[in-house]
């Protein structure tokens, strides 16, 4: 058989790219980038499979590796912390040059063996794949290797169970139920806790950020509606300053439009009772 020109071109395009991507595995600092490199290699591998008359394996490669295995990798990366960039400084003395040497040596040995070995003339899979590649594969897999396949099935089930067992976290304290939480809240009432959820931060015409307190029924800002962290950091904004800024803006707009008349048909849906409400709703409109 002969290799078609298209395949040759495909190979010479893909092979350097795949090699580069694989080298990225060694050199990139972030694990996520490494995962993307590997994904590229695997997709390229799938394409090469298809080109090599192994269309079934090509599909399986995409489904299993890029679809399942690499997704699993990404999940674990997210669990571990996707931001972490690895330091590439070597800590084990001599490991770096040893690794480089061994990698290059291994490549040299393998390439040497390949170049030294004499292969029979390529037969090609046209004949074997006459009944289509999946059928040909199935005939071998389910006839000659049926026992191995079943064993591998068992292995998969076992591995799945192993994954469950290994990542299972044993509970070391009794489970906290709704009832426990409710009881705790009621018990904490004397310390100033409330039964209801805390009020949400304020929502204003131009501002609905977490750092601005809401206004209470009496128009006073509710400090505890701002998340505690922001308050402690001193990042909470003052509600009155926001209101004042909005009011001055509204006033300027109205003056520009010549509509200095007060807003008569104010809908009284909210609990907001001060003048800010008018300005606010006017702005909404």
């Amino acid at each position: 058989m002969t290799v078609s020109g298209g395949e040759t071109a495909l190979f010479w395009v893909l092979a350097p790219l795949m090699t580069l991507a694989a080298l990225g595995l060694i050199f990139v600092r972030r694990a996520v980038h490494a995962a993307i490199c590997v994904m590229f290699v695997m997709v390229g591998m799938a394409i090469l499979y298809v080109a090599q008359e192994a269309s079934f394996l090509g599909v399986v490669q995409v489904v299993v590796y890029t679809g399942a295995v690499m997704m699993l990798f990404l999940f674990v990366l997210m669990l571990v912390g996707i931001d972490a960039a690895d330091s590439l400084t070597e800590t084990i003395r001599g490991q770096r040059w040893l690794g480089v040497l061994l990698g290059l040596g291994l490549a040299a040995v393998l390439l040497g063996v390949i170049s030294a070995a004499t292969f029979p003339p390529a037969v090609g899979l046209a004949e074997a794949n006459a009944v289509t590649n999946p059928v040909a594969l199935a005939r071998v897999l389910l006839a000659d290797y049926v026992l191995a396949m079943e064993v591998v099935g068992v292995l998969l089930v076992t591995a799945a169970l192993a994954g469950l067992v290994l990542t299972h976290r044993r509970r070391i304290s009794p489970k906290v139920t709704q009832r426990d939480l409710a009881r705790e809240r009621v018990a904490a009432l004397p310390q100033g806790r409330t039964l209801t959820p805390l009020p949400a931060p304020g929502v204003y015409a131009q501002n609905n950020a977490m750092d601005t307190p809401a206004l209470g029924p009496d128009g006073a800002p509710l400090e505890h509606s701002v998340p505690r962290v922001l308050r402690i950091r001193g990042q909470a904004r003052s509600a009155t300053a926001v209101l004042a800024a909005e009011e001055s803006l509204v006033a300027r707009e109205l003056a520009d439009a010549g509509l200095l008349t007060a807003d008569a048909d104010a809908d009284d849906d909210g609990a907001r009772a001060d003048g800010a409400r008018d300005a606010h709703q006017g702005e909404e409109r």
């Binding site: 595995l25 060694i26 290699v41 490991q95 290059l104």
Partner: peptide, 24 residues
């Protein structure tokens, strides 16, 4: 193709030796 496989294999092995992140 075999040469490509050999190179990829060597690169994978070097990765195992050189990288510290278990996932990589």
């Amino acid at each position: 193709y075999l040469g490509l496989a050999a190179v990829l294999f060597a690169v994978g092995a070097a990765t195992v030796l050189l990288r510290r992140n278990a996932i990589v």
